[in-house]
Design a protein around this nucleic acid. Structure first.
Lengths: 238, 238
DNA sequence: TAAAAAATCGAGCGTTCGCTCTATATTGAC
DNA sequence: GTCAATATAGAGCGAACGCTCGATTTTTTA
């Protein structure tokens, strides 16, 4: 699986994505016409990402959002009940979408391994980079109840990682020197790195598949040269 | 070097820390009495960390800060010229302090290696956890000019990492399968992980030195079991 | 201990915020 | 083309914001 083939199977068009978004929260919107709502929601959400990236969601005013999205204040409030809900919608839909896709992918034959899960996450975070970035940066503004729904996808990701690592350890493909939970915890920030510092890797000319390969090599092999591995075993093993 | 010995050498008392802070920005404060200023600055900064952690700096009002720190609005403004400057001071002082300490540590004999640099960063981020957390989460609110000063410590850290990795590669201790720059970039989020998700590791009962060890093992050895390394070499090497 | 200097107080200023509500414009069924 | 139904506009509301400044308290000086 590479990024291109992933996209062919799982990349929704903008229209498809926001149609799903609209239907997910359908009863919360006062706008009943799906065609209109989907189009307006797309501009609202995208304007939110743009403004939040430059400042932060808290510093973004609804007047700015109104101007950026081309809707009036009243028009805006046909789609959100309050500012906080806008942030909540983004978190909840992303979580739903990530879970859905991960479950789809891992159901495929030969796709329930470390490489596949890691690639799925990185590819997804590329398709929905503004969503992932927003969710990471603004997660603090959620109340305790709201967080529970929002981190479901995080928990699923972590449990999937632990599962495949444990299996690898049982099959003696993977070392047991670190607990699977520890490896999973250390792996997650390598996934976030891609969507948090995306500009950095673009600037360096590193493609997403090169990044995935680097992460896989890093996770599986580490830094140590095969030449010096035996020495290392003697010196550093606790 | 372990955390305890690091603390003995480099941990400043609260008073020492904020005395340095006061002197670093001395001419910006209207309060001339160092003893008074140091004490008040400590309460202001700590209140800022507390409130920003629960909401965000943008959502924190100066009335909240006034209440939390026990100073009046006017009292507060003897120490800051405006809200934005408070955030800027925190960023700038942290960057200064980190650079100072890293340079101190790496000057020591036998301390210019990967383990030492990584430990220094993780230990520092433990001593100054609220500072690191704040700087990471609120970096977006800085203007372009302000960012330049704030990320100096980040750039220093990255260049130190690259330096020692390159040296390790020349000495054939480290594999050259990944570029030093790539390894350094993937290492950094493992350092941030400790201060961003500190509660998680505390809850698990993982000590800071256990975390450091896990990171070192992860970086140097990766996941692959020595048993399967030779197979892996044949299958996965690009 | 009295006067000068320094530090703090907090009501109040102008502004902007999130949000509402009525008037208007747009849409779709017939 | 007409008329309900639906969707959008934007001035206006009270509240909260960042910040100021003369009054007051605390500290230092002599």
């Amino acid at each position: 699986m590479d990024y291109q083939s992933f996209c062919q199977q799982y990349q929704p068009s903008k229209k498809e994505l926001f149609t799903q978004f609209y239907r997910f929260f359908k009863d919360k919107f006062s706008v009943k016409n799906e065609r209109i709502a989907v189009e307006k929601l797309a501009t609202i959400i995208e304007a939110t990402f743009k403004l939040s990236a430059n400042q932060s969601f808290a510093n973004m005013s609804l007047r700015q959002l109104s101007k950026e999205s081309g809707l009036s204040m009243g028009g805006l409030y046909a789609y959100i009940q309050n500012k906080q809900q806008l942030s909540l919608f983004i978190h909840e839909f992303l979580s739903y979408f990530v879970i859905k896709t991960i479950n789809q992918v891992t159901k495929n034959k030969g796709c329930n391994n470390l490489e596949c899960i890691i690639k799925t996450h990185i590819y997804l975070s590329e398709l929905l980079q503004p969503w992932f970035f927003f969710a990471f940066m603004e997660s603090k503004n959620l109340s305790r109840d709201e967080i529970k729904a929002a981190i479901q996808s995080d928990l699923l990701m972590e449990s999937k990682l632990i599962e495949v690592i444990k299996r690898g350890q049982q099959e003696e493909i993977y070392s047991t020197i670190l607990k699977a939970e520890t490896v999973a915890s250390l792996t997650k920030p390598l996934l976030s790195e891609w969507y948090l510092k995306r500009w950095k890797y673009k600037k360096r000319g590193m493609s997403i598949d090169q990044y995935c390969l680097a992460v896989m090599i890093f996770i599986e092999r580490g830094l140590t040269s095969p030449h010096s591995l035996s020495e290392f075993e003697n010196n550093e093993k606790p």
